[in-house]
Design a binder for these strands. Structure first.
Lengths: 186, 186
DNA sequence: AAACTTTCTGACCATCTGGTAAAAAGACTA
DNA sequence: TAGTCTTTTTACCAGATGGTCAGAAAGTTT
C-alpha cells in the first residue's frame, strides 16, 4: 500500500504500472498480484483506506466549540495535511479530476453524509449570529481548495515562491487563517 | 487541437491515446502524426497555446484601478473561466499535478514573470493602505485554488451540492466575492 | 497530360502492460 | 520424514499503444 501510494500519487492511475508498484514494494509483479486482484483493486483499496484519515479534520469540527476556533483549527489541520501527506492529497485530486471513476460510492456516501452534517453545523452558527452568513458548502469547498492547493500544485507554488523550504506552509497557514477569520467574522 | 483538448483534459496525458485524439478529430492516426511530431508534441503545443488565454484575467489586473474592484473582477472572471473552459483548467491541473514534466519553462518563464509583476501591484496597494496587508503570492494562490476548484473538482462539487444546474457558479461567484472582499478590506 | 508536391491510408512493428500458468521454494503439521 | 498448504518466482501471453513506411489519392504546377 505504501508503494502504491507513492507510485499512484506521482503518476496517476493510468500513468502507473503494476511493475512499478511491485518494484517499489520490493517484490515481483506476480507476487503483488497474488495479494491483490489487479491494478484497479490496489487503487480502490488505497482510496478507501485513506478516505477516513483524509476526512478526520473535518470530522473533528464540533458544534460545541467556538466557531472561529473550530475554523481556525480546521484550516491549520488541512494545511498540515498538505505538508505531511501530499501524496494522499494528490491521489485524491487525480481521481476526482478524472471524474472519480473508481470511487463514485465514496463521494455519494461517506463524504456527502459528513459534509451535509458539517454544513448544517456551519449554518447553525450563522443563524445564531456567530459566523457571517454565507453558503456553508462553498465555504467548505474554499477551505479544501486553498489548503490542498499546497499539496496538489506544489511544483507551481515552489516555482513561484522561489523557495524550497517548508516555510511556505507556515506562510500559507497564516495567510489563510487571516483570510477566513476576517472573511467570516460576523 | 480541439480534439486533443477534449481527450487530454478528460483522461490525462498518459490516459489518452493518439488513436483517441485522431478519432475525435475525424482523421486517422498516421494522418494526425503527419501534422504533429508525436503525442508529446501535441500535448505541449496545446499547453503553450492555452497558457496566454488562461492568464488573460490576471494580466488584466491594472495598477490604476480600484483594488477592491480589480479583485472582484478577477475573481468573477476566474469563476467564469471555470464554467466556460473547464477542459483547459483540467488540462493544466493534470499537468501541474504530475509535476509539470512537459512545461517547466512555462512556469519559470512567462508565468513567474507575470505573477511577480502582479504581486508587486498587490503589495503596492497594501502599503498604500488600500488593501489589508498579507502575502500577495498566497493571495493569488488562494484565488486560483478557490475558482479553479469548480472546474477541476466538478464531480465532487456537483455530488455534494446535489444539483446539476449551472447555478453553482453563480453561488460560487457570490460566495468568493464576499469572502475575498471582506477578508481584504483594509 | 505529364510531372511534381502535398495529404492521407492500410499494413505493420517494437515495446509495454495487465494478467496468468505452472512449478519451485518455504513453512507448518502429522 | 512425508505430506500439505502458503508464498514466491520464472516464463509467458494477448492486447494495447506509439510510431513508421511504402504507396495511394488528391491537388497543384508546368
Amino acid at each position: 500500500m505504501e508503494a502504491a501510494l507513492e507510485v499512484f500519487s506521482t503518476y496517476g492511475y493510468r500513468g502507473s504500472t503494476v511493475d512499478q508498484i511491485a518494484t517499489q514494494a520490493g517484490m515481483s509483479k506476480p507476487n503483488l498480484l497474488y495479494y491483490f486482484d489487479g491494478k484497479t483493486a490496489i487503487h480502490v483499496a488505497l482510496l478507501e483506506r485513506l478516505m477516513s484519515t483524509w476526512l478526520a479534520p473535518l470530522r473533528a469540527i464540533s458544534e460545541d466549540g467556538d466557531p472561529m476556533d473550530e475554523i481556525r483549527t480546521y484550516v491549520r489541520a488541512k494545511v498540515k495535511m498538505s505538508r505531511d501527506h501530499p501524496r494522499e492529497s494528490r491521489l485524491f485530486a487525480n481521481e476526482i479530476l478524472q471524474g472519480a471513476p473508481h470511487i463514485p460510492s465514496l463521494l455519494t456516501g461517506e463524504l456527502k453524509e459528513l459534509v451535509d452534517q458539517k454544513a448544517g453545523i456551519l449554518k447553525g452558527w450563522m443563524t445564531a449570529g456567530k459566523l457571517a452568513p454565507c453558503d456553508p458548502y462553498h465555504l467548505i469547498f474554499s477551505i479544501w481548495a486553498t489548503t490542498q492547493h499546497y499539496a496538489d500544485f506544489d511544483v507551481q507554488v515552489r516555482t513561484l515562491l522561489g523557495t524550497d523550504s517548508d516555510q511556505r506552509f507556515e506562510e500559507a497557514s497564516t495567510f489563510l487563517e487571516t483570510l477566513f477569520l476576517r472573511g467570516l467574522k460576523p
